[in-house]
Design a protein around this nucleic acid. Structure first.
Length: 563
RNA sequence: CGGGGCGUAGCGCAGUUUGGUAGCGCGCACGGUUCGGGACCGUGAGGUCGGAGGUUCAAAUCCUCUCGCCCCGACCA
């Protein structure tokens, strides 16, 4: 491909609105343009990257026996009403009416549609298992699109769905997908973790996410180097470091007007980890007192999973329910549900005395109060792994893929059943598995760029080699470049020939910016000695190569770098 | 949805406080000189200052409303 024949509108300056590295570089290097919030045009280079990624996806999905198909983007409301998600999902779903005033929606995902298909077409256990997938657009009216192509309102997803007779079959397909995902992300040159995640609204029991560490990521994950425990912070367990024991006598302390942990700790000159914070919440009209160590933060999602949706109690409710005003409440002597964070099992603590203006020292769980135990704090980097005790690492990460064991949530709702060997009708057991190609693309840029521009992994680069004749007036340079443009594709390379009549500096800067992994530089300097240069974009290493056997030598250089 | 910021030429920005001829750099077009890391000189094209309404002799600038984009948070199959 000639540079003069492919539209690559590079920019000298970073776009003003971009913050994330991938956002800046993909716009600046001419890969994408923004149409509106969360809506992006993929320019020729950008599309080539996406198609490279999709090729990897298809190869690996086909390799585990998944079958590609394609489903509509416009869905009748009916099917979504049957699973209940028409009403469960709020503004995030684009809704519209057709000319007959029928409710329709745009595809935010395809569980409903694929299950509809299974319900209509699968009859017998002999039809199972099936794994179906597509690479198809999803539309979600995101509350806040952000970071360029990382969170958009319209995006492509590879989504696959497994259908099995039993749990063992689901387990098999789940594992097959997990392994395929490892191969996909490795092949795409991404650094990633596979973490435990919250199945959330998808329903089902088990879920994992594939996470590419990057400061631009919206998620936080906890990683244990000791035992390999890896989990999304939305559910990550941890053991906060335990401060040395203190054998206080039980003693009331006057703390007039000191209500918050901050006020009391500075008043009593005692660190916050020696305190118990009591947080009264109202769940479904029932009050629950959540207990957290003073230096920890309540993890609202974790608590929600235990007691359902809740809201903080008002000051009046605290007074009415506990008989003490906020700021001086403690867990002792109340007749309501207590949930305490596991790290409070050991040790003695200071907490509110249930008496205005007083706190109390020497409170011990099990003796002074008897709660239900659960991990309800937010894991932090200084915490320890609950399994092996090693310290945890907390990283920001981009969610590039996820796998869910759905079970029968959708098959039951849509009556997707099969007849088993014994003649009984059973719901099909399902799994659902997603990958966002644009997020792979953005992650590759986030993880692989330098100050000069993008550095593509060889597997997803829009071109393998960029040939740069620096002086277009030199017939020798141009002829050599043209020849390589002809010969290198015969060796299996996709070549971009910068045939523009630009100065050397412009060509070299643009080459670094767009990030093709190998640059073949043909300039008068080396041409005098019958050489050209090959440069590795990532390492910056250059090597002189004789022009006589250039194509073969380039091939050898690239091959040997892969070993 | 809550909080904050920003909309002036294709891109990046100044001008708004204190109302009075709409500017700079890059890019673009033409001519010339240059030619291995975003060249230089000259000439030129290009803007209803996001939109609507208002105040005023006069509005990019002041007031009201509105639309859009970005960031933080909430939310996020």
């Amino acid at each position: 491909m000639r540079y003069s024949k492919i539209f690559i509108p590079t920019l000298r300056e970073n776009p003003a609105e971009a913050e994330a590295i991938s956002h800046k570089l993909l716009i600046r290097a001419g890969y994408v343009r923004q149409l509106a919030a969360g809506l992006y045009i993929y320019l020729p280079l950008g599309l080539r990257v996406i198609e490279k990624i999709n090729t990897v996806l298809k190869e690996e999905m086909n390799a585990i026996g998944a079958q590609e198909m394609s489903m509509p983007l416009l869905h009748p409301a009916e099917i979504w009403q049957q699973t209940g998600r028409w009403s469960e999902i709020g503004d995030e779903m684009f809704r519209l009416k057709d000319r007959g005033e029928r409710d329709m929606c745009l595809a935010m995902t395809h569980e409903e549609i694929i299950t509809w298909l299974a319900a209509h077409e699968i009859r017998s256990y002999r039809d199972l298992p099936q794994v179906w997938y597509q690479i198809q657009t999803k539309l979600r009216d995101e509350a806040r699109p952000k970071s360029g192509i990382l969170r958009t309102r319209e995006f492509i997803m590879k989504d696959s769905y497994s259908f099995d007779r039993d749990e063992a079959g689901l387990e098999r397909n789940y594992k097959l997908h997990s392994d395929a995902y490892h191969r996909i992300f490795s092949r795409c040159g991404i650094r990633f973790y596979r973490v435990e995640s919250d199945p959330g609204m998808m329903g089902g029991a088990t879920a994992h996410e594939f996470m590419a560490p990057s400061p631009a990521g919206e998620d936080k994950i906890a990683i244990c180097a000791g035992c390999g425990y890896q989990a999304n912070l939305e559910l990550a367990l941890s053991r906060p470091p335990y401060a040395e024991d203190r054998s206080w006598q039980k003693e009331e302390v006057s703390t007039p007007g000191k209500r918050t942990i901050k006020e009391v700790t500075s008043f009593m000159k005692t660190a916050p980890e020696y305190f118990i914070k009591s947080v009264l919440v109202i769940a479904d009209k029932t009050p629950v007192l959540a207990l957290i160590r003073g230096d920890q933060e309540l993890h609202e999602h974790k608590l929600t999973r235990l007691i359902g949706a809740f809201r903080p109690a008002s000051k009046d409710e605290v007074k009415n329910i506990l008989g003490v005003e906020a700021g001086f409440i403690g867990p002792m002597g109340h007749d309501i549900k207590l949930i305490a964070d596991s790290c409070l099992k050991e040790g003695t603590y200071i907490t509110g005395a249930n008496k205005p203006g007083y706190h109390i020292k020497g409170i011990r769980s099990g003796e002074d109060f008897k709660p239900e135990w659960a991990d309800i704090h937010i894991a932090r980097a200084e915490d320890r792994c609950v399994t092996c005790g090693e310290s945890l690492k907390i990283e920001s990460a981009i969610e590039i893929g996820n796998i869910f064991k759905l079970g029968t949530k959708y098959s039951s709702a849509l009556d997707a059943v099969y007849l088993d060997e014994d003649g009984s009708s059973k719901p099909i057991i399902m799994g659902s598995y997603g990958i966002g190609p644009a997020r792979i693309m953005a992650s590759a840029v986030e993880q692989g760029s330098d100050k000069n521009g993008i550095v593509w992994p060889e597997s997803i680069t829009p071109f393998d080699i960029e040939v740069l004749p620096l002086n277009m007036k030199s017939t020798e340079a141009v002829e050599l470049a043209e020849n390589l443009h002809l010969e290198l594709p015969k060796l299996g390379y996709e070549v971009l020939l910068d045939d523009r009549n630009e100065r050397a500096g412009v060509k070299l800067k643009d080459a670094d910016l767009i990030g093709i992994p190998w640059q073949v530089v043909i300039g008068d300097r080396t041409l005098k000695e019958k050489n050209l240069e090959i440069k590795n974009r990532r390492t910056g290493e250059t090597k002189k190569i004789s022009i006589n056997t250039a194509a073969q030598a380039i091939d050898e250089t690239i091959r040997s770098s892969r070993k």
